[in-house]
Amino acid sequence: MGFSSKAMAASSDPLGVLQILWESLHLPIKSGQLFFPILLLSLLSSSLLFFCYFSIAPIPLDLVSKISILLEETNHRPPDLLLDIERDLRDFAGLATSITLFFFFSSLFLVLATLYTFAMAYSNRNITPKDLLLRIARRWYQTMITRLYVVLLTAGLGLLSSLGVGTAKLVSDGSSAAFSFGLSLAGLLLLLYLYLLTRWSMSLVIAAVEETWGIGALSWSVELYIGNKKRGIVLTLMLLAIKVAIYGAFAAVMMASGPPQPTEAPMAIVYIVAAADALWDLYSMAVYTVFYYECRKSHGLEYTGLHAALVRVNAVVVH
């Protein structure tokens, strides 16, 4: 009896950052056969995304060169330069919008499928492909609305940050005090972004697993985040650092190969980066899934009751 009570106490102890990262590594294995198609679709989606954007990259490069000619003080401009710029803008806007919308919705279904699969694996529940498809059919709209809130909030934070840094740069006089103020402001903005990004990422898990969504999911993430800020910020910082390293290595390789020529870029490197990006995104979702349940546990909310409710909801949908 004493041993069982010790085991129960140990199981309820909060996990540290490294323990969360380690536990997240086990979720793909615990997901069983469902993880394999998710992995394949994630690799395919990421590769197609990189390929599509590299395919249309010559258009904005050509557009920049034409705009630079337009801004030059010369009388030797092509006669139809403005028409060419307008056509390039229209072509790029149409292609970029189509690609962005397609991958927004494809990634939406992948994110929902991945988060729900990892959540069930964490709670030691076996689900069938039919269960997963039913969940996607029931929750895709709610997850999409939650994700749109996250996108808008991220864009708003980026705009406010740009305005703040720009204002600080305009009023600065180039002194060391102004430089220190700029560094302090950048550091505060980074901490704010890490703080908010952790909550926003957890709100997507909530939308996929719980029955709330949108503002409700964002509000629920605020409550669960109380008392878990340090772990959340450190986790997000580590995940973002690896993400930046992936793209930094890609940029370094491309710059080392000479002038930027997207159409002639070695596609092997592109696909390697796409695969690394897809794998890291899957792992990041596993980390936020474990962190979400750790936040629930820290507030005395075990996940067994939640999933019992989900079972009842799915049973209603089936019948």
Rank of each mutant, 00 (worst) to 15 (best):
T143E: 07
L41W: 10
M202G: 12
W200N: 08
L115I: 09
E264Q: 13
A113Q: 00
Y288Q: 07
Y116G: 08
A265D: 02
V270N: 05
F104G: 10
Q19N: 14
S180P: 11
F92C: 07
K130M: 11
G2F: 05
D62Y: 04
L204K: 03
I226P: 14
G248N: 06
E264Y: 15
V311D: 13
L163S: 09
V165C: 02
A93I: 07
Y247N: 14
P260F: 14
F181N: 11
I226W: 08
E294Q: 08
G94P: 12
G166I: 09
D80F: 06
L41G: 08
A217P: 11
Y225M: 09
G258L: 04
S68R: 07
V313E: 04
L48T: 05
E223T: 15
P78R: 01
F118I: 05
A137E: 03
V317C: 07
Y288C: 01
A168W: 00
I99W: 08
A315E: 09
F92I: 06
L191R: 09
N124V: 08
L218R: 10
D131M: 04
T212L: 01
Y292W: 09
A315M: 09
L40G: 13
K229M: 11
I246S: 03
F109Y: 11
S221A: 11
E211V: 03
P58A: 00
L152D: 09
I127A: 00
M267I: 14
I272G: 13
V311Q: 04
A57I: 00
A177K: 12
V318Y: 08
Y292H: 12
Y292D: 07
L194C: 13
V209W: 00
Y292P: 10
V311A: 10
R87G: 13
F51V: 13
S45E: 02
R199A: 06
M8I: 13
A208V: 02
I20C: 06
N314P: 11
T114N: 03
A121G: 04
S42M: 00
L95R: 07
P37W: 01
V273Y: 05
R138D: 12
G305C: 11
L189K: 05
E210Q: 02
F250M: 11
L18S: 13
Y195M: 00
L61Q: 04
I136G: 11
H76M: 12
I99R: 02
I99D: 01
C295N: 06
I215D: 02
K297G: 09
V244K: 10
F35G: 10
L48S: 07
D13K: 15
A252N: 13
S47T: 07
W220S: 13
F250T: 15
Q142C: 05
Y193E: 07
L237Q: 03
G305W: 02
S203W: 00
W140L: 04
S123V: 14
M120Q: 12
H299K: 15
G182S: 15
Y288D: 02
L39F: 09
A178R: 02
